[in-house]
């Protein structure tokens, strides 16, 4: 039987995590792992109550670190597929099956917000995503339309090979670099994005200009 794990890196998502877990369960996925990245709110309590398993970082280490913890867990427990989604409710769980349709043919399936209908996406986000993809191409050699997407499926081969070393928001670009360097196959599939007030208000967005500049400096210094 195919082992599928849904992984949600989460930091202070107590207000919405229950809803997100319930929606994922409703579309048929029961094995849900929350990587709590040192939340100070009700995230852990709410997630456990909603029936998800929780792996907790004792202090906040960033989305990249949480993603890497999720990949390590999937590797240790021999999962066939690790499905990463944002925990702020911006991804539609109904898209999981759509992405899974390609998972047997590709090592990584990326849920892309930049393909298809972009009307929902605020213009600033569209520009930031495009710039993020250009920076990724510049430093990691591969252009994907939505390099900063948090909705991804990794198969067993990708789980084993991808190594995330950046702790913060730079990890999305690093994953694209890993796909390129380790010659993994990938497919971008359009997904629906739900921009709620909650997801737009999040302070830890990886797409601000300040974070973009920090990202470039880190990439230069790591070279």
């Amino acid at each position: 039987m195919t082992k599928i794990l849904i992984i949600l890196p989460a930091y202070n998502e107590g207000k919405i995590i229950t809803k997100v877990i319930n929606q994922i369960k409703k579309v048929g996925f029961q094995d849900i792992l929350i990587i709590d990245d040192g939340s100070t709110d009700e995230t852990v309590k709410s997630a456990k109550k909603a029936g998800a398993r929780v792996l907790g970082h004792i202090i906040n280490r960033g989305a990249g670190a949480a993603t890497s913890t999720g990949l390590t867990y999937a590797k240790i427990n021999n999962y066939d597929y690790a499905i990463f989604m944002d925990s702020d409710g911006q991804h539609n769980p109904k898209d999981i099956k759509k992405l899974l349709n390609y998972a047997d043919k590709y090592d990584v399936v990326i849920g892309s917000r930049m393909i298809g209908n972009l009307e929902n996406m605020p213009i600033q986000r569209r520009i930031a995503n495009f710039i993020g993809s250009l920076i990724t191409k510049l430093f990691f050699g591969l252009f994907v339309r939505d390099s900063q997407s948090g909705f991804k499926i990794f198969n067993k081969n990708a789980i084993r090979k991808i190594n995330v070393t950046f702790d913060r928001y730079e990890f999305c670009s690093e994953i694209i670099g890993e796909i390129h360097n380790k010659k993994l196959s990938f497919k971008e599939v359009p997904i629906e994005v739900i921009y709620s007030t909650h997801s737009l208000e999040k302070k830890h967005s990886g797409q601000s200009i300040k974070n973009g500049i920090k990202m470039i400096i880190k990439f230069i210094l790591r070279r």
């Binding site: 990587i35 398993r53 792996l55 907790g56 970082h57 004792i58 202090i59 280490r61 670190a65 890497s68 913890t69 390590t72 867990y73 240790i76 070393t165 702790d167 210094l221 790591r222």
Partner: peptide, 20 residues
């Protein structure tokens, strides 16, 4: 600093997985 940050993350991850 980068090296120290990486070590801290490694420790945090090990504890998280061990706790599970």
């Amino acid at each position: 600093i980068e090296e120290t940050e990486r070590k801290i993350t490694k420790i945090v991850r090990t504890i998280a997985i061990k706790d599970d």
